[in-house]
Amino acid sequence: MSIFSAKYRPLAKKGFECVFKTLTLKPCDTGLDDQIKSEIVGKLLKYSPALAKIINKQFALLSWIFVLLTIGSLAYSGLGIYNFYLYGNCEGPNATGACILNDITGDYGRFSEPKDLIAPTTLDGIAVGDPNAEIKIVEFGCFTCPYTKKAEPTIQQLIREYNDSIYYVFKPFPLPNHNGSFDAARAVLCADEQNKSWELRTEIFRHQEICSTDGVLAIKNLAKNAGINMSNFNRCYDQNKTDAALSRYIQQGKDSHVYATPTFFINNKTIVGPKTVEQFKCVINENQNLFEQIGCSLGQWWGK
């Protein structure tokens, strides 16, 4: 940051020079190391002359440790940026993260801090189960987001286990920074017209990478494999018949302040990112007894 300040720019310059020289095993002759050492030792002298003496003697070793730590943390930051670019999350594909809405174009109205999430007011979407069921789970998801994919087995298991007592609604929320996300959302909505959305959705998640790289072409192939009537499907898809619905879902996502996928609203509770079945259960049961609530918080804390 210091390169932006006239006061600290010369220090930053000396610092870079010093690190570079240290790395190339040349002595740092900018005097910065001496300056830092002297200031630290000078300050310490007031409190502990003995410690000051040790630092004074071992400063070269200490600075090497710091150089290595700096390189380590730089490399880690680089990896984070790479992951963010590739997976939409700094921690990479296997992390308990979520695909962050990186709204560079501003179409989604935000590229800022997450606001508080607000549960959607309507239950339209691609739905499974009894609309009168006690537990209602709404998911905003993006078909080409690896984290939405990662949450999929959990969702399937929950639907299986809770059976009739869950009403599950999927609202497509394609992220603009994920290739193929809009194509996939339209395709699943078209498949839903033929009641084949689950089949296509499963296929898309299974072949998520090709969908991202090859877009419509790959998705249509998957649709064919899923046993979808292709002439109806093509008509729906090519005539943009689902655009109105898709825009509606996106608007609902924006109104709910969704900032990452998958985002779940479980009755009025929220979960962002793929979590374990246990963690979902915790949230579902949360208003039970105190003991379970504590267990839940711990579970969420420790759960992977």
Binding site: D34, Q35, E39, G42
Partner: peptide, 13 residues
């Protein structure tokens, strides 16, 4: 001791 070191340490005091 490098002269600058000593001066900087004194400066701290």
């Amino acid at each position: 001791a490098k002269p600058h070191e000593v001066a900087l340490m004194l400066d701290q005091q």
